[in-house]
Every structure is written in structure tokens, then in C-alpha cells.
Amino acid sequence: MNLKKNDKVIILAGKDKGKTGEIREVMPSKNKVVVTGINMISKHVKPNQNNKGGIQKMEAPIDASNVAVVCSKCKKHMTPKNKVEQSGAVTRICRKCNEAI
């Protein structure tokens, strides 16, 4: 999975198709990501000493295959590829414009 926290992504499938957002959380073991403001659900919460109960809106995880990274330079969505430099460092680059993400 070539997705990282704070990547700007576009949604490829589902009810929020075409919307863009920033990755808030990555769950590689489940192959899912949480994107801010996307895939909002209503969750019923019981009241406790710290907060009032009720219905809260929150983001639900999306499968990683339904999002694509948006390049900051060419503004196109793609799957980044890894480039290994001579020093051994790995950088992610855009497949369309060959710029570092």
C-alpha cells in the first residue's frame, strides 16, 4: 500500500466518488484508510461523565483500492511508484510527471 498520512487523495468509487480529501489514518493490516470529510456515518453514542450522548457524525474507513493519490504538481490522480536512490533512500514519484510526491 503506497498511501501515507496527509496524502491528498481522490475517491474513485462509492457514494463520495470524485471528492477529494486528505488521509487522516492508514490501516495497512485491514487495507483501509480514513479520509477527512469523506464517507461520513452517524453513530449513536451513549452518554457518560465526559460527554453528552446522542448521534455523532464521523468518518468511516474506505478500502485503499477506492482512493488514488493526487500529484501536487500535475494535479492528476495516479498510483505512485517507488524509486530507490543510490544512497538507499526510497522516494515516491508520480507516474505521469516523474516528480517526487
Rank of each mutant, 00 (worst) to 15 (best):
E25M: 05
Q56L: 12
D63V: 00
K76V: 11
K43W: 09
K73A: 04
R95W: 08
K17T: 14
N48P: 06
A89Q: 15
S42P: 13
E59F: 09
G14P: 06
E25Y: 13
E59W: 08
M78G: 06
I62D: 08
K83W: 05
D16S: 07
L12M: 09
G21F: 07
C71S: 02
E25S: 07
P80C: 04
K57C: 11
G21H: 02
P61Q: 12
V34C: 09
R24M: 03
G14K: 05
Q86H: 10
T79N: 09
N50R: 07
E85P: 04
E22F: 01
D63N: 10
K30N: 10
I62C: 14
T20W: 00
I93G: 11
H77R: 13
K83S: 00
M78E: 06
K17N: 04
K46W: 08
K15L: 13
K96N: 12
E85K: 12
V33W: 12
I11W: 01
K75R: 15
V45S: 14
K96F: 15
R92C: 10
D16Q: 05
G18K: 01
S65L: 00
C97H: 09
K83R: 00
I41H: 13
C71R: 03
I55Y: 13
V67A: 03
L12C: 02
N6V: 02
R95K: 09
G37M: 08
C94G: 12
N31F: 09
H44N: 15
I62T: 00
S87P: 12
S72E: 14
K17L: 01
S29E: 15
S42G: 13
T20M: 10
K15A: 06
C94T: 12
N6S: 06
H77T: 12
N31L: 13
A68E: 08
Q56K: 15
K32Y: 11
A68D: 04
S87Y: 05
V45R: 14
C97K: 09
K81Q: 09
A89E: 15
C97L: 11
E59C: 13
V67F: 06
N50E: 07
C94I: 14
K15Q: 09
V33M: 11
H44M: 15
N6M: 03
G53H: 01
N50C: 02
H44G: 14
K8E: 10
T36N: 11
M27V: 06
G18E: 04
N82M: 05
S42W: 12
K46D: 14
Q56T: 11
V70K: 03
N51S: 02
I93V: 15
G53V: 03
M40R: 11
K73C: 02
K46A: 14
S72L: 10
R95T: 15
K75F: 07
T91D: 12
E59M: 09
K5P: 03
N50G: 01
G54H: 13
G88T: 11
D7Y: 11
G37W: 08
D7R: 04
N6Q: 04
N98E: 14
I23F: 06
K8V: 01
K17I: 07
K73M: 06
K73Q: 10
H77G: 05
K32T: 05
